[in-house]
Amino acid sequence: MVKKPVNLTLNDSPRAAFADPGQNLLDFLRREIGDLSPKFGCGQGTCGACTVTIDGQTQLSCLVLAETVDGKEVRTASGLANGATLDPLQDAFMDHFAAQCGYCTPGMLVSARTLLDRNPRPTRDEVIEAISGNLCRCTGYEPIITAILSVAEGRARA
């Protein structure tokens, strides 16, 4: 089994590891790189727990062949905080009880961060649309939407 070298930028840091043939990016990030923030929920592009950004676009890491991200820029939820300083979205998720079991949370945060980077003042409908690819089974959508809107409205650190 010939492994392929993969060089990528992960959360602004250059990283490299070897990918197995057929290994998806989710498994590669978790097992070869050691970033455990993207989660496995379905392996079929349904749940969004594995959401990362690749060159600025949200994608499902379980549906990306690891070797195809060679030379690309990948961001995950573990890159949201800057040391001990959290992203305002992370603060807002804590304040608004926007996580229960926490398993969908990393993917949800990546989707939300990408939305706000492009559209700092989204409407409620735009927030709903932006997280529509991320399933939460603890039915925490309302607090999640509220948390994202609170950041959009600049109220998170009020």
């Binding site: 978790r30 905080a81 959290l86 998720f93 009880f97 926490g102 398993y103 949370t105």
Partner: peptide, 23 residues
Amino acid sequence: KPTRRQDILGHVTGRSPFFDDHL
């Protein structure tokens, strides 16, 4: 009164250790 979950910092930083988060 509303209260913050004890485990929520781990959740929002992606560091809560689920069973498969052990290498």
